[in-house]
Amino acid sequence: MDEIIGGLVRAVELILTLNPEVVQVTFRSLGISVTSVLLASTINIPLGGLIHFSDFRGKRALVNLIHTLYSLPTVTVGLLVYLLISRSGPLGWLDLLFNPAGMVLGQAILITPIMLGLTITALDAISRDIRDTTMSLGASEMQSLRAIAREAQPALVSAVLLGFGRALSEVGVAMMIGGNIRGHTRVLTTAISLETSMGNLELSLALGIILLSISLLVNLAMSLSQRR
C-alpha cells in the first residue's frame, strides 16, 4: 500500500523536476508509438476502405481472420519480427534489430489487425445509407466518399487512439526487438519492467503513472481537435 502512495509522490516529483533520463525515455516512448501509429494508419485506413468497398470471394473469411488477430500476443509479434530482422533472418541486412526503427515496425504490425478491423467496422456502420442517399441526390463518387469519410471520422479517430494505446503500453515487442538498451531503445514499458525486476517498485509505479499522463494528453489533444 505504501508503495502506491510512494509511487504517486515519486511520479509528481519526476514530472516536476524533469528528470533527464525519464524525459528522454518518455519522449522515446511517445516518438516510437506515434511513428508506428502513423505508419499503421497510412497503410491500414486506406486498406480498410479498399476491403470495405470491394466485393471479392473470401471477404468474410478475411474479416474474421482480422478479428482473430486482435488477440495477437505482443511477445509473439516480437518473436516473429525478431526472426525476420535477426542478423540470421531474411531482413537481417537492414540492421533493424535493437534499433528504434525495428520497434516501430514491430508495433505497426502489432496494431495492424485492430486498425484494419476497426476501419472496416466504422465504414460498415454508416456507409450503406449515406452512399445511397448522396448518390440519389446526384453527388459524384468522390463527393459521396468524402461524405462517408466525414461521418466515419469519430470512429476512425478512436481506431487510431486504440492503436496508439496498444503501441504505447505494449512491452513484448519493445523488449524483444528494442532490447531495452539504456539511452537507445529503452521506453517507458521496458523501464517499468526493468525497475520492477530490480525491486524499485515505487519508481516503477511512477513510470506507469507518467505513461498514463502521456496517454491522457494525447487523448485530450485528439478530442479537442475533434470538437467543431
Partner: peptide, 13 residues
C-alpha cells in the same frame, strides 16, 4: 508536432 517526433528519434540515433 507528430511529424517532428520521428525526426527526434532519428536524431537521437
Amino acid at each position: 508536432v507528430l511529424l517532428c517526433l520521428p525526426m527526434a528519434i532519428a536524431a537521437d540515433d
